[in-house]
């Protein structure tokens, strides 16, 4: 049931409207250089598909996702760094497009959470065991 929701997005998107043109050159084709392809993969897995919003462009059959994969592979091929491409996309679509939240005034609690949780656990445990060993 769970993944169904996402799958619906994936499936229904092409039904909305379908371009007759074949997919873009690098939508379904890997880069020749395996290390660059790995870079592109990692980036594509963390970019949200704009049409079927529950999935990354790496996992989507929507045409716009294919076009964005094409764009990303071309840019990586041309030597651009993945983080520069991510920044370029965030500049256009906002933070929502990236599954990797940046650390800023809005998201710091997200990154403080592991530290706070560990600290809290440590505090509770110390009280517990300090007494127990006494």
């Amino acid at each position: 049931m769970k993944r169904l929701l996402l799958a619906l997005a994936l499936i229904s998107a092409p039904l909305l409207a379908n371009s007759p043109l074949p997919s873009a050159p690098y939508a379904y084709v890997q880069l020749e250089d395996p290390s660059k392809e790995a870079e592109a993969q990692a980036l594509m897995q963390s970019i949200r598909c704009l049409q079927c919003q529950g999935q990354s462009i790496h996992d989507s059959d929507a045409q716009i996702a294919g076009d964005l994969r094409n764009q990303i592979r071309l840019r990586i091929k041309a030597g651009e760094k993945p983080e520069a491409i991510r920044a370029w996309l965030i500049e256009r679509y906002g933070d929502y497009v990236s599954y990797a939240p940046r650390i800023n005034s809005l998201t710091w609690p997200l990154f403080a959470a592991p530290v706070l949780l560990l600290g809290f656990a440590f505090f509770m445990l110390r009280r517990r065991f300090a007494k127990g060993d006494a």
Binding site: A17, L21, A24, P25, L50, Q51, Q63, I64, D67, L68, N70, Q71, L89, R92, Y93
Partner: peptide
């Protein structure tokens, strides 16, 4: 535009 390039350039996500 056969590869949606202008869409990515202006931050558009559909037609």
């Amino acid at each position: 535009d056969d590869v949606s390039a202008i869409q990515f350039a202006v931050g558009s996500s559909g037609v």
